[in-house]
Design a protein around this nucleic acid. Structure first.
Lengths: 205, 205
DNA sequence: ATAATAGTGTCTCTAAGACAGTATGCT
DNA sequence: AGCATACTGTCTTAGAGACACTATTAT
């Protein structure tokens, strides 16, 4: 969001807000996300990332922030809430040279690293996709979040060999250009055994 | 610690306390640990694990807890602080059937899982050992934290092949029974590439 | 002598890395 | 026709799993 009030008026900042009585912090995060961006809390993956508690991180006084990583498909166009002059989605990958308010640069970087790590060890990449998706869709998630290109043959072998990662629907996707791809949905597996390696990241031509 | 005051008087609980003005939470954790157990904050590995924020988790009112995992060698005998009738170290591995105060059972379980996961992906097992240690010492860390037995030949091959995990000192350990083992110290590597696998945990006779 | 720990070497097997061509839809 | 995406298969290589014996110390 672009902040409408001091401090850091005019700077971009992550959405957030204060916890209310009787609320767990996860509920606070989901509520603020929905209020400020319109992302509904259904079909939303939400994971706690870290706590930021430097005494002087907010010039107004002592504020301790707990950050959450949210993953959801089909993002709605955000509308600016009360404390923002504008709200939008930004690509985080090339650069991350943004200048965010407070220590939000650090918070964003930690969350991005968490997302990248989760893609290695869990099946959470499917949370970026809709109900059904092709293997090509899933590969695009990995390539964008990791910022690399991957070999499609090896990628296909990997995701189809891990038990419970993907469940085939009988359907195919029609409409776009190219040969229609088989549609899958998220399987029951939560963790990836063995992990999806991102050590040797080779570039595809 | 065994609690000396209500609520949960007489129950065991993890050490902890409230944050003070101008303190980062990591400093709070280190301070409370030292006050209540005598573990000094030098040579201490401290890592944030999670936030616990259920509105009714403390019957006295709204308390949000941030938990930390601490790893240190050569633990001193703890002395009970002000709010405890006794303080001691407990083995966490066989059972974890403890009945801790508040939601500390959950906190402990999350921290244990974090420690186990860190042993897979980082070189932090060395933080359980003193300045110098043998490969047998290091294997014992893995076996105790993971609760398994490992093949010493494969373990040795692994830890010596990962670059920067161990740095050889010229020394050997003398004194105990058995052939003296070569002493190593922690190397510069922080992450384990590839990871130390704990998937197939076989039992050694 | 016996027990306890340290150290060495090989075979197998799983899975990742590299790599090219065919198939099927759209415009 | 040309383009875009989907799909199939092989060789190589890195590294984990399983496994037995010798070496060196303390008691």
């Amino acid at each position: 969001m672009e902040r409408a009030t001091e401090p850091f008026r005019g700077s971009k900042a992550l959405p957030g807000g204060f916890v209310e009585d009787g609320e767990r912090l996860e509920e606070t995060a989901a509520r603020e996300l929905e209020e400020e961006t319109g992302v509904s809390s259904s079909r939303l993956y939400l994971e706690q990332v870290g706590v930021y508690s430097s005494p002087d991180r907010d010039p107004r006084g002592r504020v301790i922030t707990v950050s959450y990583l949210a993953i959801a498909p089909n993002l709605p166009t955000p509308e600016a809430g009360e404390e923002a002059t504008s709200a939008d989605w930004y690509e985080v990958n090339p650069g991350l040279s943004t200048e965010l308010a407070f220590d939000h640069d650090l918070i964003l970087q930690d969350a991005l690293e968490r997302a990248r790590s989760r893609l290695e060890h869990t099946t959470i990449a499917t949370a970026f996709c809709g109900e059904v998706f092709t293997i090509g869709d899933l590969q695009r998630v990995y390539e964008i979040v990791w910022g690399v290109s991957m070999d499609s043959r090896n990628f296909r072998r990997k995701v189809t060999s891990v038990d419970g990662f993907l469940e085939g629907t009988g359907e195919k996707r029609n409409g776009g250009p190219g040969r229609p791809g088989a549609l899958y949905r998220k399987g029951p597996a939560q963790v990836l055994h063995p992990a999806m390696l991102r050590s040797r990241m080779q570039l595809e031509s």
